[in-house]
């Protein structure tokens, strides 16, 4: 359990070693507050959707998973893509409604970011990795939480560095996207030091 969390945060960081969610990563990271908001939203959605997708996959889609319904030898796992996307989109919508009802303060803080998350490949990627690595239910909770924290940590670090860089003199062609890539590369190098060889 602890192993899964730690490795999902550091050595197998979704953003830095699998390049997932990069588009959002580059787009929102110009200010620390927005990055923090998105980071929290990702942790919450990730911790909910990965275990949920795990349940759906193992009770409905996996090979001969439908035996409880009397249908044997039916492999529906090719449908996992559409099912996961649907679940993620639905979860994000439900989360939005629930937050709006019970915690308006949190809703107004996260509100803008929630729809963005539906098309963030880090979320779908984590669910697909969960299937590929055969995690069980508890492991998938740990993985969802850990990978969310890892992504949030990366985007927060990156936003902090970028905010400082706004005050520096940078060669024209490198300003903006070019330098963003190189900084991410440096952070990624730092994180890869956590990998146990």
């Amino acid at each position: 359990m602890i192993d899964i969390i730690i490795s999902a945060i550091f050595s197998d960081n979704l953003a830095l070693s699998f390049f997932l969610g990069m588009c959002t990563f580059m787009a929102v990271s110009s200010r620390v507050e927005t990055a923090a908001g998105l980071g929290v939203a990702i942790i919450v959605v990730q911790t909910i959707t990965v275990p949920l997708n795990n349940l759906v996959f193992h009770t409905l889609l996996a090979e001969s998973a439908l035996q409880w319904a009397g249908i044997a030898n039916q492999d529906l796992s090719f449908l996992k893509l559409i099912a996961f996307i649907g679940i993620i989109a639905a979860m994000v919508q439900i989360l939005e409604v629930v937050l709006d009802r019970f915690s308006p303060a949190l809703y107004s803080a996260l509100g803008v970011f929630l729809p963005l998350i539906t098309v963030n490949c880090a979320i779908l990627g984590a669910s697909l990795f969960m299937v590929e690595r055969h995690y069980n239910f508890t492991e998938s909770i740990a993985y969802g939480f850990g990978s969310g924290v890892g992504w949030a940590l990366a985007v927060l670090l990156f936003a902090a560095i970028r905010e400082r860089l706004n005050q520096q003199r940078i060669p024209d062609g490198l300003r903006g996207l070019g330098l963003a890539f190189i900084i991410t590369g440096l952070i990624s190098m730092g994180f890869s030091a956590f990998t146990l060889a």
Partner: peptide, 19 residues
């Protein structure tokens, strides 16, 4: 073959194109 090199190459490529 490691992840960071991809970031560096694209970053430098963008720099090159924009120069």
């Amino acid at each position: 073959q490691k992840a960071p090199s991809a970031f560096f190459i694209i970053g430098l490529l963008i720099w090159g194109i924009r120069s």
